[in-house]
Amino acid sequence: MDRRDLLRLLAAASALPFLPRPADATSLGRLLHRTAALLPRVLTPDQHQLVSALADLILPRTDTPGATDVGVTPFIDGLLADWFPEDERHQFLAGLDQLDRRAVQQYRGSFPTLDPDTQLAFAATLDGVEGAPGSAEASFARLKELTVYGYFTSKTVARDILQDPVIPGRFEGCVPWQ
């Protein structure tokens, strides 16, 4: 194959818009786009604030974007609406509520209202700690997993920050990394 043909093909392929097929296109695809900027579908306003505060605590804005800058909260809300089985959704939300109640008990304030140092100190007591489904610890772990996934699969991070090329053109097995 001629090199020019190849490049043309590649350009065409990577420029292909994502065309949902009937089997893939559930309500989420459509709704996520329509409502991302609008109302959350599962999270209450309080839960929405809590998820956003936790996500930004896990991956805060620095010289690179933070979790909410790249839409991690609507991503999690969308998964809760259309991907989570009902029992897991209930457990996840119950654990979040428990987490916030604990913040109120220990620090006299809902988690999003606490100052950053207190938030960090509190979250550190949950991080990496195992808990039964429905516990603050289990929901924190799940939230962290989804936050990391949603962050690194966002267009901004995957394409512009990691700069992982879609079409590398070659494979090298062992190159120095500066």
Binding site: L16, F18, D24, L28, G29, W83, G150, A158
Partner: peptide, 24 residues
């Protein structure tokens, strides 16, 4: 191939970012 191959489609272009449409 021109429309059905999706090897260059990136996660952020998919509704579930690669998690798959679990219920379907």
């Amino acid at each position: 191939p021109a429309t059905d191959y999706v090897e260059h489609v990136q996660p952020w272009q998919l509704p579930f970012r690669g998690y798959g449409d679990r219920s379907a």
